[in-house]
Simulated scan of single mutants.
Amino acid sequence: MAFDDGWESLEDLPPFATTVATDTARKVITRNESPDISFDRSINPYRGCEHGCVYCFARPTHAYLGLSPGLDFESKLFMKPDAPELLERELSAKGYVPKTIAIGTNTDPYQPIERKTGLMRRILEVLEKTGHPVGIVTKSDLVLRDLDILSRMAERKLVRVALSVTTLDPKLSRLMEPRAPTPERRLAALRGLAEAGVPATPMVAPLVPAINDAEIERILDAAAAAGVEGAGYVLLRLPLEVRDLFREWLVTHFPDRERHIFTLIRQMRGGKDYDAKFGQRMTGSGPYAWMLGRRFEKACDRLGLNLRRTALTVEHFAPPPKPSAQLELF
């Protein structure tokens, strides 16, 4: 299927080769007990991400596989081809209690490889069939491919979609997230979702001091014009190897700002490059972080965002039959 990321009007990137291996994990739902996030279970159809976002906090997960969080994370991908079947098995397990599943919390489920595999669509088909609620995070307008499923699920309050809009400047976006769709395409995706009745939320994420933090209000203005009901933001996170990768990127593209940016980061992270403390890792602390938070809140108040939030429901959940279950005679 042909797909246009919106970059045809700008200079093409050099060819980028990726390899795809099979992830042989026998479970697809991952559990967490983090007190500062709104979900306790998630699905990640892929490991690694072709979008190549320099700031991605998930990059260190590739180090667990003996691969580099740098280029390997972008080019040596893993997929779970049997994820839909594994999901059906887990949803049919005795004692399973449904709660919203988050998809896209680690790597983007609508990254370019999804155009060929259709893995995310197959997962959505399982969730729709079983009436299971899901929250999706992406930065790709490829999500509109599945608008037929998403709109039906939205009618039953089974889905929300968040799109990351890091900047409205296409040149900056190309530097920060080279193989993700343009900002214009993401705003169009927000509009398409909202018009179809799918609860859509822009994520101003990540906020990078002295890089894109001046755009908070403009991004929210553009998103509100697309018809969204709410918005969110996340401060830049630099765990483990991400810090050094990000510093190298700054030295290459913004050498005059590198020291200033890290000074601001440390002001928001208790004097460190990163603070993983629950309740602070997403928003930071200190005067600069407080200012960003208040600017975001005031812009949302002015635009009427976050006044309501569509609550997802588990009332439609019907577990699939176990593979060994005998078919009914009538």
Rank of each mutant, 00 (worst) to 15 (best):
P15Y: 03
A299N: 09
M120I: 02
D256V: 06
V126H: 00
T283R: 15
Y274F: 14
T19I: 05
V228N: 13
G66A: 04
A194E: 06
L327W: 09
E177T: 11
S173N: 10
D23P: 01
V242M: 07
I136A: 13
K322V: 00
A231Y: 02
G271D: 12
V314Y: 01
D169G: 07
L327T: 15
G230E: 10
E217I: 12
R26T: 13
P60M: 09
V54S: 08
R281K: 13
K157W: 06
A93Q: 00
T107I: 12
S324D: 00
R243I: 01
E195R: 14
G271C: 11
E88I: 00
M282R: 15
D213E: 14
Q280D: 05
A21I: 00
K322S: 00
L144R: 06
L305P: 15
Y110L: 05
A154F: 08
D5H: 14
D23R: 07
R191Y: 11
E88M: 04
S75T: 14
T182F: 07
S164E: 11
M282V: 04
E11R: 06
L127E: 02
R237N: 05
K157M: 03
A200Q: 08
D72R: 01
P287D: 13
R160D: 12
R179W: 10
P255M: 12
T130P: 02
P60C: 08
A194S: 15
L163S: 11
S151V: 08
N306S: 12
R185V: 05
A58Q: 08
T30V: 07
T107Y: 04
R179S: 03
S324G: 00
K27F: 00
R145T: 06
A189T: 03
L119H: 02
R152E: 14
A214W: 12
F57L: 09
S42G: 02
F16S: 04
F73P: 05
I211V: 15
P209G: 01
L250I: 07
R266K: 14
E258C: 07
D148Q: 07
F317D: 01
K272D: 15
R186A: 05
V204E: 13
T18C: 13
L238D: 07
A226R: 03
Q267D: 14
L238M: 11
V204R: 06
G227L: 08
L87E: 01
I149L: 15
L235T: 02
G192M: 10
P112E: 11
R243C: 03
G293R: 15
I101Q: 00
H51R: 03
K80Q: 09
L236A: 09
R186T: 10
V126W: 00
P45N: 06
N306E: 05
V161F: 03
R247Q: 08
P112M: 06
P15I: 13
T22L: 04
M268K: 07
L329K: 13
L303I: 05
T313P: 03
L327R: 15
